[in-house]
């Protein structure tokens, strides 16, 4: 059972990561690869604060989220001031640089990782309670991003993606909007990191490498960018399928390559057969307004 719980938790956390990344890169149009490092910041902040500074775990988790938000502003504020094009390059430096810092600090445990992270809920209420917590957070995040995308804020994000200068010419602040979107997405990733840390109770820098960013992006793209369920489906497919394969009891020498092939194959298939992703792109602002008023939509 513990194994199944582990899968549910990891899939749930990847749904959270993919959904928050969809907010940033899909709805916000902000091209960045620095999502794993915010995941890491949340994990390490919460782990260090709770183990070494006696901060209650729940508080430490929120601190992890706050640190991720603050770090995201440190990335977006200077780069977006110059031009949006710098964000991608700066995010690469940010991702690699910060992880290098984590690897070389003493209080983070360095490259060997950080152990003995205090557990949360599980001792008092059992493993199920943590599964429920993660599922609740996952559902909340998916619904939150959906709510935002379909709100007036979503309409403004759509306008901002269309034409930033025109957006400014109607009195809207594109830069602030981008900082907020990026901050929210990164904060969510940070919270996911904290949830990860207190379940597995051991984290190492490798878990947050730049490659993770490719995995999360693949989930968003395969599932369907700028959709509610795309990142959910993508995360399920790309996390649960490889996990499910392990049930086949194949020898590790075969299993590893098969999982790799599956991953690459899926991406290739989608690039050629269904570039829009599994879940068809919903242009909320194209579909919603006419239908809700004229009622002619099918």
């Amino acid at each position: 059972m513990e194994y199944v719980y582990g899968i549910i938790i990891i899939v749930g956390l990847y749904v959270v990561l993919a959904t928050s990344f969809n907010l940033i890169i899909g709805y916000g149009g902000l091209v960045s690869i620095a999502h794993p490092v915010f995941f890491a910041l949340g994990a390490y902040t919460s782990a260090v604060l709770s183990r070494d500074f006696g901060v209650p775990v729940l508080l430490a988790m929120f601190a992890g989220m706050v640190v991720a938000v603050v770090a995201s502003v440190a990335l977006t504020l200077p780069t977006l001031r110059v031009s949006g094009d710098y964000l991608l390059i700066a995010s690469i430096g940010f991702q690699l640089g910060l992880l290098e810092v984590i690897k070389n600090l003493r209080f983070t445990g360095g490259p060997g990782g950080f152990t003995n992270i205090p557990p949360f809920l599980i001792r008092d209420f059992g493993r199920e309670s943590y599964v429920i917590l993660v599922l609740a957070v996952t559902i909340a995040v998916v619904l939150l991003v959906r709510l935002i995308a379909r709100s007036d804020y979503g309409r403004a994000m759509s306008a901002m993606r269309d034409d930033e200068q025109a957006f400014a010419s109607v009195g809207r602040d594109a830069m602030w909007m981008k900082i907020v979107i990026f901050g929210l997405g990164s904060g969510i990733a940070g919270f996911a990191g904290a949830l990860y840390a207190h379940y597995y109770r051991f984290i190492t820098p490798e878990q947050f490498e730049i490659l993770q960013s490719a995995a999360i992006l693949t989930m968003v793209v395969v599932g369907g960018v700028r959709t509610t369920w795309g990142p959910v489906v993508g995360a399920l497919l790309l996390q649960a399928l490889p996990q499910a394969l392990t049930f086949l009891h194949l020898p590790p020498s075969v299993l590893g390559p098969i999982q790799g092939l599956l991953f690459t194959g899926l991406v290739l298939v989608f690039m050629f057969v269904r570039p829009q992703g599994l879940v068809p792109a919903e242009n909320v602002w194209r579909d919603r307004t006419p239908r809700s008023r004229t009622g002619e939509g099918g």
């Binding site: 309409r155 269309d162 025109a166 307004t289």
Partner: peptide, 11 residues
């Protein structure tokens, strides 16, 4: 320079 992905009203 309208917002092409939006309807007239949403613009």
């Amino acid at each position: 320079r309208l917002f092409p992905s939006l309807t007239v009203l949403d613009n």
